[in-house]
Simulated assay, not measured.
Amino acid sequence: MLRLLSAVFALLGSLIGPALAQDARRSECLAMANGPTRAAPVSFRQAAAAKDEVTITYAGHSTYYIDTPGGVRIATDYSGVYRTGRLPDVVTMNRAHSTHYTLFPDSRIAHVLHGWGDDGQPAHIAERIGDVYIRNVTTDIRRYFGEDSDGPMIKDGNSIFIFEIAGLCIGHLGHLHVKLDESQFAAIGRLDIVMVPIDGTYTMSLGGISEITKRLRASVVLPMHRFMTPLEDFMQRIGNQFEIDRRGERSLTISQETLPSTPTVIILDGV
Rank of each mutant, 00 (worst) to 15 (best):
A96L: 11
R246I: 09
I66P: 05
L173S: 04
P41Q: 11
S261A: 13
Q236D: 13
A75H: 12
R73Q: 14
M93W: 15
Q256S: 15
G248H: 00
G207C: 04
S98P: 13
Y65E: 00
E257A: 09
Y82S: 08
R83K: 10
V81L: 15
V196I: 12
M32N: 06
M153V: 15
T229G: 06
I160P: 07
D199I: 01
E28P: 09
M32V: 14
G151L: 09
R38P: 08
A75N: 12
D89Q: 11
Y144A: 11
N34A: 12
L2Y: 11
P41F: 07
G151I: 09
A123M: 03
G85N: 10
C29E: 08
T213M: 02
A75S: 11
L11E: 11
I134R: 04
D269M: 06
A123W: 00
D140H: 07
F161C: 05
Y101K: 08
L206F: 02
E164Y: 02
T253C: 04
T264S: 14
R128N: 01
T84V: 14
R226K: 11
V91N: 10
L252Q: 04
Y58A: 01
F44D: 05
A110V: 10
M228E: 09
A110I: 03
I16P: 00
D118P: 14
G85E: 09
G146L: 01
H124N: 06
D199M: 00
K179C: 14
C29T: 05
G157P: 08
V81T: 15
G200P: 05
A33L: 07
Y82C: 04
I244W: 02
A186Y: 08
A50S: 06
S98A: 08
R215S: 12
H111D: 08
T76M: 09
D77R: 07
Q256R: 15
D67E: 15
S27W: 02
N158I: 12
C169Q: 00
A59F: 07
T68H: 09
G174H: 05
A123G: 06
D118E: 13
P105H: 13
G115T: 10
E147C: 01
T99D: 15
G60P: 00
G189W: 02
E53C: 02
S210L: 01
D52K: 11
R25C: 05
R217Y: 15
L222C: 08
G115S: 10
Y82I: 05
G167H: 03
I109T: 09
R26K: 13
I56M: 01
S107T: 14
A31F: 14
Q184C: 14
R128K: 10
Y58G: 00
H61V: 10
Q236G: 09
Y133V: 05
G146C: 02
A24E: 04
K214C: 10
A40K: 00
R215F: 10
E53Q: 11
A49P: 05
T258K: 03
R143S: 07
R135V: 01
I198Y: 03
M153G: 11
V81E: 15
E28G: 08
G80S: 13
R215V: 06
H61W: 09
I74M: 15
G120I: 07
V112G: 10
R38S: 12
E182K: 12
R26H: 13
I193W: 05
